[in-house]
Amino acid sequence: MSETWIILGATSSIARCLVRDLAGEGAALILAGRDQADLDATAADCLARGASMATPVQFDVRDPATFGAILDLATGASGPICAAVFTGSMPDQEKIDADVALIDGVITDSFTGPARFLQELAPHLERKGEGTILGIGSVAGDRGRLGNYVYGSAKAGFATYLSGLRNRLGRSGVHVVTVKPGPVDTAMTWGLDGLPFMTTPDKAAAHMLKAARKGRNVVYTAPIWRIIMMVIRSVPEPIFKKMEI
């Protein structure tokens, strides 16, 4: 029985690679995002690559009224339901410093919006007793840093939420994977200097899908970031607070 995947933030670079892999497996895809033209193109691409269904759906993570249509579409499917959450936003920390109201948007995009969606989805998955959730966090969530601590704290909140959701859904056979990407070579990082250990979106997508199939819980991509973040987390706070990394 082919899987039905809900992709929140389907216009993201990594999502586009993930849906290609899923299309090749014959999955049914619900592509949720805002840029309709781009969603249409991705849907066509998925169908051409073997998806059994690819439906673009208008979705705004800040507007819970857009959630219902997606849930209706997914819960009608007969096979397992899965979800991958790519929503998030990372304005420059300076912009946030200049306009503190931006914090609400960042928290909604990266944490409370997707958490609210998954909270609505969870009972359906529990009822089915199967399914997978891929939640995209960030290495930035592992420790608050000078450069992006608002974004980082939103991702940290989401990671903690995913941990709890895994604890809950694991009891009914649903698996939750927390993915923590380091820098990925996408439009978001194009032209930015000094990003070490960059991976590509197709590698990141293949890596997270493999991790999900293997039942991994928390996965860093590129994998070296697990070690790097272990070191960064272990720096004592009196020293860390003076560091600029």
């Binding site: 670079s13 586009r16 840029d35 033209a37 781009d38 193109a41 996408t186 439009a187 194009w190």
Partner: peptide, 9 residues
């Protein structure tokens, strides 16, 4: 160099 990911870009 630019590397757009969407036709609109």
């Amino acid at each position: 160099l630019a590397r757009p990911e969407r036709l609109s870009h």
